[in-house]
Structure formats: structure tokens, C-alpha cells
Design a protein around this nucleic acid. Structure first.
Lengths: 179, 179
DNA sequence: CGGTCCATGTAAGATGTTACATGATTGG
DNA sequence: CCAATCATGTAACATCTTACATGGACCG
């Protein structure tokens, strides 16, 4: 019954207790590189997870006007996550706006198309640089597949590979467009 | 105001007239590799596009019980698509269930994790084979960036690259998990 | 004293999925 | 004769985004 977002939250809480606000930040970086959600969705999902007894919270006084809710995974939640991790992922419907544009690039003005694709390549080069730095910082997790940082390293390795392939593909495309 | 799905439909109709049913098929294959939609969404989107005068339909008697609606792009629709193709894509929130699982793979049973990842790699190897065949069939579009088949070739090249990178990354992962 | 960060929530709307509804033709 | 294909549409539901709402602490 738990949604993917629910497992994203459980995956973060399995590494340590967090508030809804903390979760929202991590669902921008670093989990945001492969799964995102807004705070509005996170708070409602936390309520659902708590109803199912997969997480629980303790109220701690915070600096702001309202108390913080510090969430932790329950044993049940950890078991549920552990089981889900090894289930085959449902192939989600791919959505790629860049590919959708390239599918119709044949009828575009080549000069404008090149401009857009060059800008896109620059963005991916930036992201690649950022990912490579993160990968370097996490390199020592390589021999420890039973520690949380291995999850960080493995996913950022995917990011590095993805950016490299995208940059190369955009290079191929630019080589084949006139001007 | 037009949605990405709207441009997916325009991109298909720019290659020739199609019915809603035809569109639904192509939004499974080949456009389905980077953008999908169900027929229920397509019919409502076609109505919206027609209201905005980006497409128009002619009723032709079909083999089934109800008449077919043969849709074509209007000049306005073609212009709209042409402009959209070269606009920078809004970076969509990434959603990758496999990466979400790998982020928590450190707490899974390594044997079960390996099993899932090997199965995943096999799926991607299959897809790669299929993409490579399509790429070979479309190879002659390489020198014709102003023809529709160039869009087919460019997008399938992206598919080939993506599958190769994913297979390599899964190989790296399997090399680092015990057993 | 104005903006950003911390911190949690609700509500309205857009988007997308699943299910319901109909019915003729073709191939095994 | 049964299943799949052709062919179009509506309705209910789930999911996700954007906007609304509140308010203290801290920095410049």
C-alpha cells in the first residue's frame, strides 16, 4: 500500500531521525536527483506512514513558533523498506521533454536548435562536475556495501554515468545538425 | 498553454494524419520510449488542441461501429510545435524507482539484492538489443536532419546510450555487492 | 526593519490512471 | 465461438503542483 514517496521517506529515516522539514530538504538534495516531492506532499505522506505504524514521531521544542516533530522508523517500517528494496521496480512511464523535442527537431530552425542543445549540454556539464565531486567525497564507501554511504555512492555513480552519456549524445546530435 | 502531451501529439501529426487510436498506439511505441499517455488522456487532449485550432479532424467511415476521426495539424499547430522544439526544456522532477531502491540497498539482503539487479540488467540488455536493431534500420537518416526519420534516429540513439550506461552501472554495482 | 531560514499544515487545481461503456470485424 | 483488434468516449480516483496561511529567530 505504501507509495514510492513513502519508501523514499523511509529510506531517509532509516539513516537517522528527521523532521518533515528536513525530509523536504533532502528530497531536493541529494534524493532529489532521482526522486522529488514538495513539503505539502511530504506532510500528508508522513501522516499516512504513521497511521500504518511505519514511522512514529516525538515532539521536541524547536526554535520557531511551532514544535518540531522528530520522525523515526519503526521496526515494522524498516522491515517494509528492506523487503521493498529487492522487489523488481515497476517500469514507470518515461517522460523526457528533451527527447520529445528532439523527436521533432527535423522541422525546427537548425540555428535555434543548436543554440538550445548547446545550452542543454552546458547544463549537463555543470551537473557532471558537481556529481564527480560528490562521488570523489564518497569514494571510500566502495568497500562497505552494508553502510548507508554505499547507497549515496552507488546513486551518484549513476548520476555521473547518466550525465556523461547525455553529454556524449548531445555531442553526436550537434555533429549531425547543419551550421 | 499547450501541455507536453499536446506537443507529443503535434509531433506525431506533423508526420502525417492519424486517428486518436493511432496516436495511442504510437504513444506506446515508439514515442512511448520517452513519453507516454493512455487513450483516455489522448482523446481529451485532442479536443483541447482542436479548440485551440492547432489540429482539425475529418470524419471518415471506419471498419468498426463508429466513424474514425482523422486528425491533421493546422498551419498554426505546426508553427506552435516548431517554436516549442527550440525552447529550453523545463527540468522535470526525475523519478527513478531503481535508484530509489539502490539508495537503501545497504540494508537489504545482498543475495536478494543481487537477484533483483541481475534481472534488471537482463531486461536492459533485451531493450538494448531492440534499440540497436531500430538504430540500424534508421541509420540512413544520419545525413538528413530535416527529415522526420532523423528524429527517430536521434531518439533511438539516446535509447542505445542510456541502456548501455545503465547496464554498465548495474555491472559496477554487482561487482561491489558481496556473494 | 526587511529578507531568509525554520517549521507545519490546508485547499484548489492540474495531470494522469483505472475502470466503465459500447460494438463491429477478423483470425484461429 | 472466443479472443483480439479497431475505435471512441466518460467518470471516478489517485497523485502532484501551486497557492494560501502562520509566525518566531537571526542576519545585515
Amino acid at each position: 500500500m505504501t507509495s514510492s514517496l513513502g519508501y523514499a521517506i523511509l529510506g531517509l529515516l532509516a539513516r537517522g531521525p528527521l523532521t518533515g522539514y528536513d525530509l523536504a530538504q533532502r528530497l531536493r538534495t541529494p534524493v532529489g536527483y532521482f526522486w522529488t516531492a514538495r513539503h505539502s506532499q511530504i506532510y500528508t505522506e508522513l501522516a499516512r506512514l504513521e497511521k500504518d505504524r511505519l514511522v512514529r514521531h516525538a515532539v521536541v521544542p524547536g526554535p520557531g513558533p511551532r514544535d518540531n516533530k522528530r520522525y523515526t522508523v519503526t521496526a515494522r517500517g524498516r522491515r517494509s523498506l528492506r523487503d521493498w528494496v529487492v522487489t523488481p521496480p515497476a517500469s514507470a512511464p518515461p517522460k523526457n521533454e528533451l527527447l520529445l523535442r528532439v523527436y521533432s527537431v527535423w522541422l525546427a530552425d537548425p540555428r535555434q536548435a543548436r543554440e538550445m542543445l548547446v545550452a542543454e549540454q552546458a547544463k549537463h556539464l555543470d551537473t557532471l562536475g558537481a556529481f564527480e565531486q560528490i562521488a570523489a567525497r564518497n569514494a571510500d564507501a566502495e568497500g562497505h556495501p552494508d553502510e548507508p554511504s554505499f547507497g549515496d555512492l552507488a546513486t551518484v555513480q549513476a548520476g555521473v554515468g547518466y550525465e556523461r552519456f547525455t553529454i556524449a549524445w548531445l555531442g553526436w546530435l550537434l555533429d549531425h545538425l547543419p551550421e
